[in-house]
Amino acid sequence: TTQFTVHSPEQAEQWKEYAKQKGLEVHVQKKNGTWHVTIH
């Protein structure tokens, strides 16, 4: 599991796309103005 924080919805979307291409599961949670992205 990879977990990191991004600071814009655009970055979060890019990671979603990346994960989809790799066939991975991605979870994005918005918290205090940042987005926590978890890739399984």
Rank of each mutant, 00 (worst) to 15 (best):
F4N: 02
E17H: 08
E13P: 01
N32W: 05
S8V: 04
E17P: 01
V26N: 01
Q29R: 11
I39M: 06
T38Y: 08
H40S: 13
T1W: 15
V26Q: 01
I39Q: 00
N32R: 06
K20L: 11
H40D: 05
L24S: 03
Q29T: 13
G23F: 04
Q29G: 05
E17D: 08
H40N: 08
I39T: 01
E13H: 07
Q3G: 06
F4A: 03
T1E: 08
S8Y: 06
E13N: 10
E25S: 11
K20H: 09
V26A: 07
S8A: 04
H27M: 09
A19W: 06
H7Q: 11
V6P: 02
H36V: 15
V37A: 01
A12S: 03
S8E: 04
H40G: 10
E13V: 06
K20Q: 10
H36I: 15
G23T: 03
T2W: 15
Q3T: 14
K22N: 13
E25F: 13
Q14H: 12
K20M: 11
V28G: 00
E25H: 12
H40Y: 15
E17I: 11
T38P: 00
A12K: 02
K31W: 10
W15A: 04
A19G: 13
T34Y: 13
T38M: 07
E25M: 12
T5A: 08
K20N: 08
E17S: 09
V37T: 01
E13A: 10
E13R: 11
H7K: 09
K22M: 14
Y18N: 02
K16W: 08
G23V: 02
L24K: 03
T1Q: 09
E25G: 07
E25I: 14
V6L: 05
Q29M: 11
T38C: 10
W35M: 02
V28D: 00
A12V: 15
A12T: 03
A12W: 07
T1P: 10
V37Y: 02
Q21M: 12
T2V: 15
A19K: 01
V28N: 00
V26H: 03
Q11E: 15
W15G: 00
K31H: 11
T34H: 11
G23H: 05
E17L: 12
T34S: 13
V26M: 06
P9T: 09
H40M: 13
E17W: 10
K22V: 08
V37P: 00
E17Y: 09
V26K: 00
Q11H: 08
G33T: 04
E17N: 09
G33S: 05
E17A: 11
Q3N: 08
V6Q: 02
A19E: 01
G33W: 04
T34L: 14
T34N: 08
T2F: 15
K30P: 06
Q29A: 10
